[in-house]
Nucleic acid binder design. Sequence first.
DNA 1: TCACTGCATGGCT
DNA 2: AAGCCATGCAGTG
Length: 813
Amino acid sequence: MSATMEVCFNSNCNQSSEKWKRGWRRRTGEYAHLCDPCASAYEDGKFCETFHTNASGWRCCESCGKTPNPAWPPPFHFLPSQPERMKDISMKTWSGIAASGPVPWHQAPSLFNGPSIQANDQLKMPFEVDVSDGIGRYGLSERLSMASPEMKQERSCERLANGNMRFGPPEILQNGNIGLKVKEQHCPLTSDFKPIYCRNDTSSNQSLGVASSSKNETDDAPISSILSQSPSVSLTVGKQVFSPSGLDSCGEGQIRNEKSRGDVRSRNQLLPRYRPQITNEELQKISGDFKCITPLFEKMLSASDAGRIGRLVLPKKCAEAYFPSINQAEGLPLNVQDIKGKEWVFQFRFWPNNNSRMYVLEGITPCIQSMQLQAGDVVTFSRLEPEGKLIMGGRKASVVPSFDQGEVNVIGSEISSPGDANAKNKSADIICLNGHVKEKVLEDKLAIPAKRKNNYINAKSKRLRIENEDMMELKLTYKEAQSLIRAPAKIVPSSSIVDGCEFEEFEDCEPVIGRPTLFGIDHSGEKIQWVQCEDCLKWRKVPANALVPSNWTCSDNAWDLHRSACSSAEELTNILLEQLLAAMNKDPRSKEESSERDADASVDVEGHNTLANLAIQGEGKGLVASSENRTKHPCHIPGCTCIVCLQPPSGKGTKHGPSCDCAVCTPLRCRFRTLMERLEKKQTEPSSSSQNSHAKELDVDACVGSSTVKCSLNVEEVPNSSHVEEPIGRISSASPLKGQIDLNIQPEREEDFSPRSDCGVVKYSQPGLSDRFFRQQQHRPLEADVIGNLLVKQDGVGCVNIRGCVALDKESG
DNA sequence: TCACTGCATGGCT
DNA sequence: AAGCCATGCAGTG
């Protein structure tokens, strides 16, 4: 309410008033200002839902004798409860209802096509609108003719840019520059404006017709109202025709509109995740030529849905809106046809639940299996018009690339095995280091509304949902991670080379993640490193041996007090910086790294300033990484015949054999030999009596970015020599040829592992590990990328950073 | 013991 | 805070 003098938005009224009330929301986002009477009428739902040909603007229902349109009531008057409505509809009328159907979702298209769709050219519902008839009758053309050229042009461009959306009578559309209004629509339910995009046909005519809107004319008219007004207005998808009433285009009249409007309400109430996202092809698949089909809703199959129980939990509102009303818990059999035309009979029933109902479709398992759907896939329900037959379709969830495409799918350290529906879904839902995957996942996230629960990730563990930022961090490659690993302050790592691999050992401590720096030579010939301030991004010179924390800023510059503030001038010139970078790129390893990076390959200086930036670059790398130059494991050359590469992604099959001399096994084996020797030595020392137990525990840490997965490996001891047990995952020290190293370990999926918990360190204590654990660990090979930095830690003794082990590149094998 | 059924629980929106 | 719904589980055959 305001005291500003304004003319009532209702052109029929045009009353000036100091007091005005808020009416419907306009395209501009503002609200129509109404005088008191009009506002009251609006609030009472007395505005007719349509525009009239002979009068502009909204009309009070009293003026045209129309009753309030329940399909588009003002927000405050929305919706009596659906069950009550349905109670009035006997089962006998079901077919009739089905035939008349819900007013198809597109009658209020904007309510079904959310912003994500508009924002995305890949419209999930590329409906075409055939309004060849009735337009004139209902004054559309009249309004079209009133369209302002500027608006038309602007909108046309906009729509064309958005992807050949057309909406308008063909005769107009064919001219290419005039059409029917395609505009944001007032959605009273959501108080949201959502453009409606429609496409006329599948022809190459790309023109987009857009009608204009003058203030009191079409400006805020819902297209749905236009559609609902015209019995002959229909939506076509390919050859299929969608009618507003679900019947109109199929020969029946508008008489059912009143009924179906209730369905619109239901539909409007549907949560976004149930709104049909059906594609044109799917529609083509579902129905034959020239059939009317009404997408009803869809649902992503939960584990329960896809489980053996064979019960599909139906969204309540969907069930009540689109399925026959049932009053008995036992429900009734429902005939459903799948996309292949096969008939199925499900039991549609409900059970009481918290003063409500829970609707289920029973006996869906055969159908689900027939459609080869799994948890995470989507089942769609549509209705064939006019007979009202329910059509059940399916849509597979996004495909997670397999490892042999060189793409890494990491959920924490949980990597799904192909073929595992749940796992697949988990992957799709959560993580992907590869740009392709991410793109697909994001796409899917747009298309398939995010799940409310983490069930698809893992029923019991709620811990693996990783935010995007975390995903970025995980995109650090093993080499990048390696380059950031530093010895802790005051710790001088001892180095040793085993089988060509350089090992750095940090006694009694673990390495820290440092800030990326550029090494160079000072004027005096002294080796220095350049580090970039996290705040001002200026490069500062620090000693070569300086340990630079990841959040280093100028104020931390204890080596050059003159440059210990961000305000100080930068010493490093651009030219010098370029030289440094160039030199870095000349370095074989750096060069290789850079060549692996994105095609643009330019090392972004700023991109080095944080781990996250590195991660971003890693993402770019992921984008270009393809199966052609990557084997299953980044550190293995193409054609590598080691067990890791030979092993199927599912983890089934043999593990590293005792004699495996792959790049992973060899240094590990050597290192363990060393470790065990040391262990034995310590145990023989008198002071180590406390370590005289017969079981020693070794921890194997696999660092993933900032996360470390730690597996404790128990080494059973026998007199005279170390003895290593056979189970996979245990490592032999006494007999390298005998012992096995399972590089397929992964943290316990079900309960224990949290990639972020406790800095990602999860300890698995061997005594508590059952065979089941190890069996579970076989599900995936441990990617070198995931290994990143493989730490072999002898409990209480120290930490060995097998630097170089995983840095074995694919060339060197 | 297993499969099925119906309900209860609790996380999530 | 209410309602939805995924899933667990007890009861039953």
